[in-house]
Amino acid sequence: MSQGRITGAARVAGIAGNPVAHSLSPVIHNAWLEAGGVDGAYVPFAPADAAGFEALVAAGRAGLILGLNVTAPFKEQAFALADEATAAARLTGSANILQFAKGRVLADSSDGVGLMRGLAEQAPDLDVSGRAVVVLGAGGAARAGSGALIEAGAKVRIVNRSRARAETLAADLGRSVRVMEAGQALEGAALIVNALSVPPQLDFDLVAPGTVVMDMTYKPLETAFLKAARDRGLPTVDGLSMLIGQAAPSFEALFRLPPPRLDLRALLTAHLEQTT
């Protein structure tokens, strides 16, 4: 929280999820608020259930908060509760940003932006256009990431324990998406993205050399999934790069201000070292 700058005119936004205590978003946004001398605060909210999240959105409609970042399990509900949605949110049917203004709710999704910026930072030579990309999972993060990859020209292969959920996602996203079993999906893939909240079980013997492996999870920074990939000599992209990539558009949407320049990776790495 930006120390000494909280007044009756403070701008208040936050992040909603359950669980949410692990989130690094408050560290990022409050550092930006403090660096910019902004009278404001970014706080975590942990609604117990869908009804609790709906009540939080009602508080936004009532003008109590400027906006929310949204994380699991509320991204699809966030989209459903909005009055308007950006193209990115409509493509995926989920939202990680809700902006409140004059009693109305605008839904947006910056997860896809974050994923593509993370790839550009840590795998700059990767071009997914016309190539197969494997996405592990079929939840909100998988939806947003798959949408961005489709826009970049990728052919997305969804691998998920619940085939029915994966088929629903594929139907929503269109012809560029197929549901496949892991062994078949890995063949010829240029990129593998873990969008699961639990460590995936993957046979790296089936992964071709040079395949980029990305994990959306950032705590721990080196997940067992990424470590296994690195042990095989595969290039990797960590979840911190995606988080950093989506943070700036979130800050601008929530606080209606551009973020000041900060070395977020250094800030977050130091924070993670202090809390683990």
Rank of each mutant, 00 (worst) to 15 (best):
P199Y: 03
V213M: 07
F100Y: 09
R178K: 12
R131W: 13
G174N: 02
A182L: 15
L196K: 08
R161A: 10
E167N: 00
L221F: 07
G145V: 13
A154L: 14
G147C: 06
G210P: 15
L169A: 09
L173M: 13
V179H: 02
G145A: 13
G140M: 13
A182K: 01
R157A: 08
G183D: 12
I158C: 01
V134Y: 04
V179E: 00
N96C: 08
A141W: 05
D203S: 11
E151A: 15
V128P: 04
S109Q: 07
S146I: 05
G137M: 12
V105C: 08
R175M: 09
L136Y: 01
G130V: 06
Q184K: 02
I158W: 00
Y218V: 05
R175F: 10
Y218Q: 06
D215R: 06
G183F: 10
F204M: 03
Q201R: 09
V212D: 06
R161T: 03
N194R: 00
A154S: 11
G137P: 01
V159I: 14
A166P: 04
S162C: 03
L126E: 08
E121N: 03
E121L: 15
S129P: 00
D172M: 14
A164S: 11
N96F: 14
P200F: 14
Y218A: 06
A195S: 12
A120I: 13
Q201F: 04
S162T: 12
T168K: 05
I150L: 15
E181T: 05
L169M: 13
D108E: 06
L186G: 03
A190N: 04
L221D: 10
L126F: 15
V193L: 12
V212M: 13
E187H: 11
V212Y: 03
A120V: 06
P124H: 13
A107H: 04
F204V: 02
A208G: 12
D203T: 01
